[in-house]
């Protein structure tokens, strides 16, 4: 809830680039990041923003089957070098036919997958209508899933394949929103990238004997998630009046008619684009916002990498995370 005069105060402040907390339009709040506090998960990361937003992401790695049906939909927008390798002959999971997928690269039957869910703890959702919460969680889950499983998702999905055509690693990414203070979507992506950096996958060794393929999982030996550095971060921009801002507070979000989320990776690629909110965005403004987001994305990524490097050092030294202590 917001009053007419507050809305006017905020809108005019945004126009003058002097927001209610003194930030300029494109200033982010400070972000705190910590990894590894959920010791039973394969990886975890908690991100908190000055202002209350608190997101915890846990990653659990499990062995799964490569879905035969997933191919049709996934391959539709894939660049597939194999051409006709998708035709009949490649059976369902469990078959020992590995000939159709040699090399393979992005072929859907040679890769693992990432499965994401976003949930809100009830303590975070008091401000919203329960149905709004559910649709928000759905929207964010879908976006995370799309981005991470796409060609520009960063994670090397082919490296997650254990037995081509039949078995793969599935990374279950579960984001839990513990508290809400605005800027939620960007915080979720930041915590996800951090959790993937922290995730360790047990080593799987594959043996082929007498035409049967078997694999063995060694818990003691673990590997990092290949490609985590290329996982994108999002920059969400909220349109207020004729301007746009980043990292809004809850009151600023109430003043915003539309939101544009741009996912950018460290190579500067645009990985995803999504518009939210009921209002419209003028095409010229849109182009400008995307350009701004790409630049800001690089700043965010370098800040993120610095924080993660510090985390890696802490872990190497054997210092326990503070967590909630």
């Amino acid at each position: 809830m917001i009053s007419v005069s507050e809305r006017d105060y905020i809108t005019k402040g945004v126009d003058r680039s002097v927001r209610a907390d003194g930030r300029a339009r494109l200033d982010f709040r400070d972000l705190n990041l910590e990894t590894g506090m959920i010791t039973q998960a394969s990886g975890s990361c908690r991100v908190t923003l000055e202002g209350g937003t608190d997101v915890l992401v846990g990653v659990k790695v499990e062995v799964g089957s490569i879905e035969p049906d997933a191919e049709a939909a996934a391959d539709a927008d894939d660049i597939d070098d194999d051409g006709g390798a998708r035709t009949a002959g490649g059976g369902g999971p469990g078959t020992d036919d590995t000939t159709g997928s040699s090399g393979g690269g992005t072929h859907a039957r040679n890769r693992g997958r990432i499965s994401c869910t976003v949930a809100c703890s009830p303590s975070a959702t008091r401000v919203f209508d329960p149905r709004d919460v559910e649709s928000m969680c759905n929207e964010y889950s879908q976006l995370l899933n799309r981005v991470l499983n796409s060609a520009h998702g960063g994670v090397d999905l082919a490296a997650l394949c254990i037995v081509p055509g039949s078995t793969c690693w599935v990374l279950n990414v579960d984001a839990l929103v513990l508290d809400y203070g605005g800027g939620l979507l960007d915080a979720i992506f930041a915590a996800t990238r951090g959790a993937l950096h922290n995730t360790r996958i047990p080593r799987a060794t594959v043996e082929q004997t007498d035409g049967r393929v078997e694999f063995e999982i060694e818990d003691e030996e673990t590997e990092i998630v290949a490609g985590w550095e290329d996982v994108p971060l999002t920059v969400s921009m909220s349109k207020i009046g004729y301007r746009h801002i980043v990292d809004p507070t809850p009151l600023e979000e109430l003043c915003s008619s539309a939101r544009l989320t741009v996912a950018v990776n460290r190579r500067g690629n645009l990985c995803a684009l999504q518009k939210g909110g009921e209002g419209g965005i003028e095409p010229s403004l849109l182009a400008e916002m995307v350009q701004t987001a790409k630049q800001l994305g690089q700043t965010l990524l370098s800040r993120h990498d610095t924080l993660l490097a510090a985390e890696a050092r802490r872990i190497a030294k054997g210092v326990d995370p503070t967590g909630f202590r």
Binding site: Q40, L56, G58, K60, A119, S121, L176
Partner: peptide
């Protein structure tokens, strides 16, 4: 009372 999906040895689907 809620239990996180990543909380136990085997991931529980919510």
């Amino acid at each position: 009372y809620n239990v996180s999906s990543f909380s136990s040895g085997e991931r529980r689907a919510k």
